Simulated assay, not measured.
Amino acid sequence: MDWTLEVVIVPVRDLDAAIAFYRDQVGFDLDHDTTNEHMHVAQLTPRGSGCSIVVGDLPAQRAMEPGSLHGIQLVVADAEAARAELVGRGVECSEIQVIDPRDGGTFFGFSDLDGNSWAVQELKVRADRPLIAHEARGRFGEDLEH
């Protein structure tokens, strides 16, 4: 049986500011921004990922303190290029740290406007073997080749 992690709820204070940060500065795709009389929620997905984040005002999101989520991990093929891209978009990032010289041992981090923290791990193997082939997947992960 496959078990897939598809959504992580990120607690934020200001939904519109969080959407702008994750979409415009971090570069996530905005999948949807839904507002009605009962809620306002948005789902954003890192390019190449099968897992999205959701920000909003649903009960599960209100149960967590904004800024209380730490250690969410993203993976990139080139940490130096990824860090430069984020810094170029105005995101404050830690310096790159090599914890282990083998592939997977290089990291840097950043936080969102509320203090939710992210770790970015370099796995050079992702350049040749992405988890999700970019040309074979649509925005919501549907298979486009069949």
Results as ranks from 00 to 15, higher is better:
F28M: 15
D29A: 14
L30F: 01
D31P: 00
D31C: 00
D31Y: 01
D33I: 00
D33Y: 04
T35H: 07
N36C: 05
N36E: 08
H38L: 12
M39H: 05
M39C: 05
H40E: 08
H40Y: 10
V41K: 02
V41S: 10
V41H: 09
Q43K: 12
Q43Y: 12
L44V: 07
P46N: 07
P46R: 05
G48V: 03
S49E: 01
S49T: 09
G50S: 12
G50E: 09
C51S: 15
I53H: 06
I53T: 02
V54E: 12
G56L: 08
G56N: 09
D57I: 01
D57L: 07
L58C: 08
P59R: 10
P59S: 11
P59D: 11
A60G: 09
R62Q: 14
A63T: 03
A63Y: 04
A63L: 15
A63G: 01
M64G: 00
E65T: 08
E65Q: 14
G67E: 04
L69R: 14
H70G: 07
G71I: 03
I72G: 00
Q73W: 03
Q73E: 13
Q73A: 14
L74T: 00
V75G: 00
V75Q: 13
A77M: 00
D78M: 10
A79G: 14
A79I: 12
A79M: 14
A82R: 03
V87Q: 12
V87F: 00
V87I: 15
G90D: 01
G90Q: 05
E92V: 14
S94F: 11
S94K: 06
I96V: 15
I96G: 02
Q97L: 02
V98H: 01
I99H: 12
I99K: 11
D100T: 02
D100Q: 03
D103E: 07
D103M: 07
G104I: 08
T106F: 08
F107Y: 15
G109K: 09
G109V: 11
G109D: 11
F110E: 03
D112H: 04
D112N: 02
L113I: 12
D114Q: 08
D114F: 05
D114T: 03
G115F: 11
S117I: 02
A119Y: 03
A119L: 06
A119C: 05
V120A: 10
E122L: 09
L123H: 12
V125D: 13
V125H: 13
R126G: 00
D128G: 15
R129A: 14
P130I: 07
P130M: 10
L131F: 08
I132N: 07
I132V: 11
I132M: 08
I132G: 00
A136P: 01
G138V: 08
G141L: 13
